[in-house]
C-alpha cells in the first residue's frame, strides 16, 4: 500500500512523543533531589525520553579527564609553584601559546628552577593537553572550567602566572584518580631514593 512507510514512520514519532512524557512523569514525585537524579539519568544508556539539558541551570558534570585551558599547580601552604621552568610545555605546545620567562638568581645571574613569569594566551590555546601530558613535574594540568568568556578579549585573555595558579587540593578534587596515581608514583620514587641514600650511608 502506498503511504504505508509514512504511516509507520509517524508511529515512531508518536512513540517518541509519549515516551518523553512518561519519563517526565517518573520524576514528578521523586523527592527533593529529583533534579540531580533526573539529570544523571537523562544522560545514561537507560534513557528513552528527552536528552536535553537546560544549560546553564543544569550542567553535565565533566568527566575527570576533560581538558580545558591549563593551570599551574601551587602548594596549598607555601604557595610555591611546582613549575621548574624547564620549558617542555612551551616546546611541545602545537599553537605555541605558552611563554615562559625563566627565573634567574639575582646575585649570580644564573638560571633558577622557577619561572619568573608564565603566560598562556587562551585565545590561541587549542586544549590539546600536550603540556600536561609531557610535564615531568606534574606542574601544569588541564582545567575543567570552561566558562571563560569575558567582555574584553584584548586585555583578559592572556593569563599570567597569578591567574594560572591553582592549589594542589583543587587539582586533587578535579582529578582524584590521576592525583592518587601520581602521588603513589611519587611516594614510590621517594622511598626508592631514600633506600638508595640509606644504602650509600651504611656502606
Amino acid at each position: 500500500m502506498y503511504g504505508k512507510g509514512i504511516v509507520k514512520g509517524l508511529g515512531v514519532t508518536c512513540k517518541h512523543f509519549f515516551e518523553t512524557y512518561i519519563e517526565d512523569f517518573k520524576w514528578l514525585f521523586a523527592g527533593r533531589d529529583r533534579k540531580a537524579r533526573s539529570l544523571a539519568a537523562r544522560n545514561s544508556t537507560r534513557e528513552r525520553g528527552v536528552f536535553t539539558v537546560q544549560y546553564p541551570e543544569e550542567k553535565i558534570p565533566s568527566p575527570e579527564r576533560f581538558r580545558f585551558v591549563p593551570f599551574l599547580l601551587v602548594d596549598d601552604q607555601t604557595q610555591a609553584y611546582r613549575c621548574t621552568s624547564c620549558g617542555i610545555c612551551a616546546k611541545v605546545c602545537p599553537p605555541q601559546c605558552i611563554w615562559i620567562e625563566r627565573g634567574t638568581d639575582p646575585v649570580t645571574g644564573r638560571p633558577v628552577p622557577s619561572p619568573r613569569n608564565f603566560w598562556i594566551d587562551i585565545d590561541v590555546c587549542m586544549n590539546c593537553g600536550f603540556c600536561a601530558e609531557f610535564c615531568p613535574f606534574d606542574a601544569i594540568k588541564m582545567d575543567h572550567d570552561y566558562e571563560l568568556a569575558s567582555y574584553d578579549r584584548t586585555s583578559r585573555h592572556i593569563f599570567d602566572k597569578q591567574r594560572l595558579a591553582r592549589p594542589v587540593s583543587y587539582y586533587a578534587s578535579l582529578r582524584p584518580v590521576d592525583y592518587a596515581e601520581e602521588e603513589r608514583v611519587r611516594a614510590e620514587e621517594e622511598a626508592r631514593k631514600a633506600a638508595k641514600r640509606q644504602g650509600v650511608t651504611t656502606q
Partner: peptide
C-alpha cells in the same frame, strides 16, 4: 616550531 621566543626569555605577545 618550537619558536625560540617562547622559552627561556618568553614574553606574551598577542598574535
Amino acid at each position: 616550531k618550537p619558536f625560540k621566543s617562547r622559552w627561556p626569555g618568553g614574553h606574551a605577545v598577542r598574535a
